[in-house]
Nucleic acid binder design. Structure first.
Length: 562
RNA sequence: UGGGUCGUCGCCAAGCGGUAAGGCACGGGGUUUUGAUCUCCGCAUACCAAGGUUCGAAUCCUUGCGACCCAGCCA
């Protein structure tokens, strides 16, 4: 397995830290535990889009394999046809690849249905599984509670031949959905509820997105997963903490069947990110009930959403490495993710000027018929990224925020009678503020100092630098400013997580003007709009004659306003 | 109060018996034609608590306390 070529590959300075799984693998390698092999897999169920929590697992699984010259498969855990779909499957493949990973083999648990069935027959023959006719309700009652042991089903000691016959007839479609199940015969008194004769096959007449109507019975996760791992020769089966209690079952199934490989299941804590949720059920609800505009809404913590918002694969990988791998319940602050994307974008995105909320400035002493092409560098620290020509003319647009009639303390932008530098251009001075009937500022009259292009004015210091565009030459654009989707750090704490939704998570600015060089910007291309943030040209929406930009993240702002 | 797991700085996280790495955040200097970047400095006598073992403990033992997960024919 490797990092795909079309993505920025992992650079050596992407620091890798120690974690307990790396230790285990290193130790296994040292002891030649699997003949020196490291084989992992990423096993999503295609019942939703991948999210940032999956990214953690993807980076871990593919990462461990890559670091150790091993393999990593993508395997769809598609054993519940009622919730799964081709759309989800395709989105998952797309997202894993976009993140920069390339699987060794692509598998589907459904490819193993026939083998799985065969193993089940074997279990029955060993007297280790039986067909049970208890209803779901009865089974729940028989299961016992956390503190009391369960009761054995009347069918538990059904003769092997009878279970075998029943199981064949289950497959043949002789029984209704839910009429009977196949159960592993383990221990109804086990303190671990998962070991109280878990169901391993249920009858479900549902169309499967891959096997169609070939089957009317489907294997359960616990039974399927371990065998699939074994079949693929997985050495380290990495999963999240909630499966810790299932490990004895994982091991039990493989022990009974004496499969060639017996992978080691290792559990790690799932990602919890402040102000977001990573429950596929809830994300699905946000989409279905239209609280967001689809799985790829830039506010969604999905890979597709992050991508559309302008996040890079590298930043997400960096994030996954930084947060570490442990078994501890932990909450990651948003600032970590934001730091990662800012770092990547700061280094790699070209700078450009865009005025989000324009204020007109007429430069009175600038010739009306003149246009200058000012050469401005695309990146202050990386001259190799080149320069562009930005037209300058008599009427320019600046940000409304960059002018203040009553400036707060330490304000260093434009004020009445004050001077400010137009980035890459001249120093201007404001002489007159023009307002409409309602007292709103509509225009500023300024003059420019002709001797300040590329040099500081003589005898005085101009501290402020603001961005601008030429009114005549600029392009109309829409900016979508995204904030956090939730207003609370842990939406799951609420009775209803929807109550934690942030009503102001999207602000649309539709009268923006961006510099002319953006005319041929490609969808998904990322820029730093100087002084306002990082933006990405939207890949989906097309507004007639207008460029649509999604704000990925703001620039850090250390200015202490009052 | 059955079973499983976890408790090191505001948030992550190294550490595995030899005397508390690192990152994010935060605070403060410097550079800067982005209040960005960059850079320098500061930031746990302390590792859930209490006992014990040891020359020496975050690391070993004991007992507490706190948190999370499990009673789907979901994964």
């Amino acid at each position: 397995m490797s990092i795909t070529e079309n993505q920025e590959s992992l650079s050596p300075n992407e620091a890798v830290g120690a974690n307990f799984i790396r230790h285990i693998i290193a130790n296994d390698l040292k002891e030649n535990k699997h003949n020196g092999r490291v084989a992992t897999r990423f096993p999503p169920e295609p019942n939703g889009y991948l999210h940032i929590g999956h990214a953690k697992s993807i980076c871990l699984n593919f990462g461990m394999a890559a670091e150790n010259n091993g393999t990593c498969n993508l395997r769809f855990d598609d054993t519940n046809p009622e919730k799964e779909s081709v759309e989800f499957m395709e989105s998952i493949e797309r997202d894993v690849q976009w993140l920069g990973f390339k699987w060794t083999e692509l598998h589907h648990a459904s490819d193993y249905f026939e083998q799985l069935y065969g193993y089940a027959v074997e279990l029955i023959k060993q007297g280790k599984a039986y067909v049970d006719s208890l209803s779901a309700d009865q089974m729940r009652a028989y299961r016992g509670t956390l503190t009391e042991p369960g009761k054995e089903s009347p069918d538990r000691n059904r003769p092997i031949a009878e279970s075998l016959d029943l199981f064949h007839r289950m497959r043949a479609g002789e029984f209704a959905d839910g009429q009977c199940v196949l159960r592993a015969k383990i221990d109804m008194a086990s303190p671990n509820i998962n070991m109280r004769d878990p169901v391993i096959y249920r009858i479900r007449r549902a169309h499967h997105h891959r096997t169609g109507n070939d089957w009317c019975l489907y294997p359960m996760y616990d039974y399927t997963h371990c065998i699939s791992d074994a079949l693929e020769g997985i050495t380290h089966s990495l999963c999240t903490l909630e499966f810790e209690d299932h490990r004895p079952l994982y091991d039990w199934v493989l022990d009974q069947l004496q499969t060639t490989y017996h992978p080691q299941q290792i559990e790690f804590a799932r990602l919890q990110l402040e102000y977001t949720i990573v429950s596929k059920r809830k994300l699905n609800q946000l989409v279905t009930e239209k609280h967001v505009n689809g799985w790829d809404d830039p506010r969604m913590p999905t890979i597709a959403g992050l991508r559309r918002a302008g996040y890079t694969p590298k930043a997400i990988r960096d994030f996954c490495e930084r947060i570490g791998i442990t078994k501890k319940d932990s909450w990651i602050e948003m600032s970590v993710l934001e730091y990662c994307i800012r770092t990547d974008l700061n280094e790699n995105s070209p700078r450009v000027m865009a005025v989000l909320q324009p204020l007109r400035i007429v430069i009175e002493n600038y010739p009306a018929d003149q246009t200058e092409l000012l050469e401005i560098g695309n990146h202050p620290q990386r001259p190799e990224l080149g320069k562009r020509n930005v037209p300058f003319s008599k009427v320019v647009l600046i940000e409304q925020d960059d002018f203040a009639e009553n400036p707060p303390p330490k304000y260093k932008r434009l004020i009445s009678g004050g001077e400010v530098r137009l980035r890459g251009a001249y120093v201007i001075k404001c002489h007159e503020v023009i307002k409409d009937a309602d007292g709103r500022i509509t225009e500023l009259r300024c003059t420019y100092d002709t001797d300040t292009l590329g040099k500081n004015p003589e005898g005085r210091k101009v501290k402020g630098v603001i961005h601008w565009v030429s009114e005549e030459h600029s392009l109309p654009a829409e900016a979508r400013l995204y904030g956090r989707l939730f207003k609370l750090p842990n939406p799951d704490n609420e009775e209803n997580f929807l109550d934690a939704l942030n009503p102001d998570s999207l602000e649309i600015l539709s009268n923006c003007r961006v510099e002319a060089s953006l005319a041929n910007a490609q969808p998904e291309s990322r820029y730093q709009f100087e002084r306002t943030g990082y933006f990405c040209l939207d890949s989906v929406d097309d507004i007639d004659g207008k460029l649509v930009f999604n704000r990925t993240v703001t620039l850090r702002d250390n200015w202490e306003k009052d």
